[in-house]
């Protein structure tokens, strides 16, 4: 695979972007971490022993104009990365199968305009799931990633009732084939972790990497708090919205082209 990824093509045009890359990731630029996965924007893994920083807020910008109807590359990558059961891989009912990210096909009723977009945990600044969780198992990490501490989750599913995005799933059956880096188990609620195990190592989430790798470049990941990050600069330039902005949840995931 070439080091000049489509995502780079998408992010490259502005000179300051190049400057940023040079300054922050000079050494890392073009370095392959693992086959098919490359540093996209993160400078480096957080040093060992250091907690996630509140100075960072991870976020996503999804360009729906580049998201093709029927394309499920991000969904497949998520299932692969997090060892989620795909359709047909489990005996539970289809409504019981966990889906951390899904593609929603939309058609505007008044105009007939069609669009397609991925939907997952929106990593809200004020997440309802965290508010309602009786034990504090749902929590928001310092860097804005909303997670379930499955050691504390009792499986009451109130967070699933509270989430406006239907972003959480419940594990309905005993599991045995987890990814060692992504523990999951029966009786707990789970959802998109923004691939926290990858982000902590300086990698982009699997969905973002897959979207870039396939040449779609519809997902941009980065630090919303860093005005120089690619995502911050793009957010300043293009119109983007939060889904259900009326709820004032301050989502970390924003959409362009809705």
């Amino acid at each position: 695979m070439s080091e000049r990824e489509p995502v780079e093509r998408d992010q490259a045009p502005s000179p300051s972007r190049r400057g940023f890359l040079a300054a922050v990731a000079a050494a890392a630029a073009g370095v392959m971490i693992a086959p098919g996965i490359r540093l996209i924007e993160l400078a480096a893994a957080r040093p060992a022993g250091e907690p996630a920083s509140g100075a960072v807020r991870w976020g996503l910008l999804i360009d729906t104009t580049r998201c093709a109807r029927g394309c499920e590359d991000c969904v497949a990558a998520c299932a692969r990365e997090n060892a989620l059961e795909r359709r047909g891989e489990t005996s539970v009912a289809e409504t019981q199968r966990p889906q951390w990210i899904r593609k929603i096909e939309l058609k505007e009723l008044a105009t007939g305009r069609e669009l397609s977009l991925p939907m997952m945990c929106q990593h809200c600044a004020r997440p309802p799931c965290v508010d309602v969780c009786p034990t504090g198992a749902s929590f928001k990490r310092a860097d804005g990633i909303v997670l379930v501490d499955q050691h504390r989750c009792i499986g009451c599913r109130y967070c699933m009732m509270a989430c406006p995005y239907q972003a959480r799933s419940f594990v309905h059956e005993p599991l045995a084939r987890q990814n060692p880096a992504v523990p999951r188990g029966k009786g707990c609620v789970e959802g998109c972790t923004l691939c926290v195990h990858r982000v902590d190592r300086g990698l982009a989430p699997a969905c973002v990497a897959a979207c870039a790798e396939a040449g779609h470049g519809a997902m941009l990941f980065g630090d919303l708090n860093d005005p120089a990050s690619a995502i911050s600069r793009r957010l300043r330039e293009v119109a983007s919205v939060e889904v259900r902005a009326d709820l004032r949840l301050g989502t970390g995931v924003r959409y362009q082209g809705i």
Partner: peptide
């Protein structure tokens, strides 16, 4: 009906006071 009924003690040891559910406990 909880997913992890054996962990019910967690509901008594960890309270999230912003949760109406915890208040109900």
């Amino acid at each position: 009906d909880l997913g992890r009924p054996e962990r019910i003690v967690v509901a008594a040891t960890h309270y999230n006071l912003r949760s109406i559910f915890a208040w109900n406990v």
